[in-house]
């Protein structure tokens, strides 16, 4: 009657709930400010341009090559990072609901992903400006990056489903997740170019799921092509991820209300 699979499917169907919760999270933060959620865009824009100016000097790369690459990488990394770190706390942060009313549990990770998708959409305004500024050629192939966002969202949903179960049971795990994401940021070519690592320590890129997800999003928009190795890695990762999530959620589902 109420099992983990039913919970997941019903949560997807109750899109009105998680989309509203996600959207009101954003509104709440910016309700009393003049430009509203575009504060997100503005602060990201400042962040990107300052790093862009400094690092294009350090790496000795022309701005028109470096800035689009950095902007897309950072914007998507922010999406990845927030989804994972906030998603890991999805159950803990909603303990009051989980303990006080019969509610579908999987709506909470979905809420986190939806909220951050809205942030991503706002931040993409920056790329539009950059694309106009540096005259970046947008083609039909660029649309693949939307597919990239969807594939990552599906993956991060399963990932946070497992993570939020673990983090509800073991409270210090969230700190470990934060540290891992920090290291992952430096191990993923966002500030630096991936060609810098080619031929040496290939494994840093080959087995870094975040690298492949960033590639899925970034390459089509920069006029590049998605490598076959990325497609095959992501496919295998997705299947693996779903199996793990199903197993973890099945085991945890009836215990979550005790854990939170």
């Amino acid at each position: 009657m109420s099992n983990y699979r039913n919970d997941f499917i019903m949560s997807l169907k109750e899109y009105q709930v998680w989309s509203r919760l996600g959207w009101t999270d954003i509104l709440k933060k910016y309700r009393r400010s003049f430009i509203g959620p575009f504060w997100l865009t503005l602060s990201t824009a400042i962040y990107i341009s300052s790093i862009g100016v400094i690092f294009s000097e350090i790496f000795n790369t022309p701005m028109q090559d470096y800035l689009p690459y950095l902007a897309l990488g950072l914007i998507f990394w922010m999406f990845i990072n927030q989804c994972v770190t906030e998603g890991a706390e999805a159950f803990i942060n909603n303990a009051h609901y989980i303990k006080q009313m019969p509610i579908k549990l999987a709506i909470f990770p979905m809420q986190v992903i939806w909220r951050n998708f809205i942030v991503l959409a706002h931040n993409m305004v920056i790329f539009v400006f950059i694309a106009i500024l540096f005259d970046i050629n947008i083609t039909w192939y660029s649309l693949w990056s939307i597919v990239g966002i969807i594939i990552f969202s599906v993956n991060v949903l399963f990932l946070t489903l497992s993570l939020s179960c673990f983090c509800a049971r073991f409270r210090d795990l969230h700190q470990i997740v934060l540290s891992i994401m920090q290291i992952a940021f430096f191990a993923t070519p966002i500030m630096w170019n991936k060609t810098a690592l080619l031929g040496q320590r290939d494994y840093v890129l080959d087995y870094n799921p975040f690298f492949h997800f960033v590639e899925l999003f970034r390459e089509p928009l920069l006029g590049g092509h998605i490598a076959l190795s990325t497609v095959s890695f992501v496919s295998i990762f997705t299947v693996f991820n779903m199996i793990v999530a199903a197993a973890v959620y099945k085991y945890s589902f009836k215990k979550i209300s005790f854990w939170v």
Binding site: E14, R20, H96, M101
Partner: peptide
């Protein structure tokens, strides 16, 4: 449960109704 102080009455009604 789940009343949001920053939102107005109507918005709170909608959110809670959805949760139910």
């Amino acid at each position: 449960l789940g009343m949001d102080p920053e939102m107005n009455g109507i918005d709170n009604i909608i959110t809670r109704g959805l949760l139910y």
